[in-house]
Write a protein that binds this DNA or RNA. Structure first.
Lengths: 112, 112
DNA sequence: AATCGCTATATTTGTAAGGACATAACGAAA
DNA sequence: TTTCGTTATGTCCTTACAAATATAGCGATT
């Protein structure tokens, strides 16, 4: 079996993490479920952790990434802003490009 | 202040980690000091951790990465093989290329 | 055979991250 | 004004991981 190259990328703003793979997963789950509680359950992480992640995202982003509402019909909910949606798409795109780039670079090591 | 993109890459062999940034640091320190004990001290990690890392590296690599000697003049020591040296160089090269690539990709997010 | 500095491990101790749990606050709707 | 399901937060408790410590073993040199 040959070598494999793997990577993890993340985006920071003012030395705070804005987006990483886990955070993007969370945003996608919010987009699908419309609720932070349901998103946490679908990812099998605690609500507290999910809330901490989302709070950190919104604090470090330049524009709001989600809009959270407390109370009201259904008890409230969370949804992505347009900015949030485009961040998710852009992150996925960069990540995939990175994988392709690295697979190509790995050839340098295979023939040593 | 704008966004920054960061990354961490590593190479696996048979689902075991072969090389990552920490492991490459360790190999470089071994190369400079000629001893695992001194390398651990220079990186301010415990000898145990350094030894576990090196053991894991040598177990997952196709060819030996270091040659370790016990006892004898000076009590022993550790040094990189030619293969080990070229792995370090190749990893650094790929890592730097990855940074450049990602910085360029980040532009997609800056103008959202 | 005694010494020395190193590699090679096991065992114990400490610590920080995460999970479980509890609870407050909220606003629409009935 | 009561109910409901959610967001928002604090507190405790556990548990996985890292550090510290201890010790065995090695072989050239003296």
């Amino acid at each position: 079996m040959g070598y494999k190259i793997k990577s993890r990328i993340w985006i920071e703003a003012d030395d705070n993490v804005l987006l990483g793979e886990g955070r993007v997963h969370l945003l996608k789950a919010i987009q699908e479920t419309g609720s932070l509680t349901k998103a946490a359950k679908s990812l099998k992480i605690s609500y507290k952790k999910a809330w901490q992640l989302l709070d950190s995202i919104n604090k470090s982003a330049k524009k709001p990434v989600t809009i959270n509402s407390i109370g009201g019909k259904g008890g409230g909910g969370a949804e992505l802003t347009e900015y949030g949606k485009s961040l998710v798409v852009a992150f996925d795109d960069i990540n995939k490009n990175c994988w392709r780039f690295l697979d190509q670079q790995l050839e340098k090591i295979k023939n040593l």
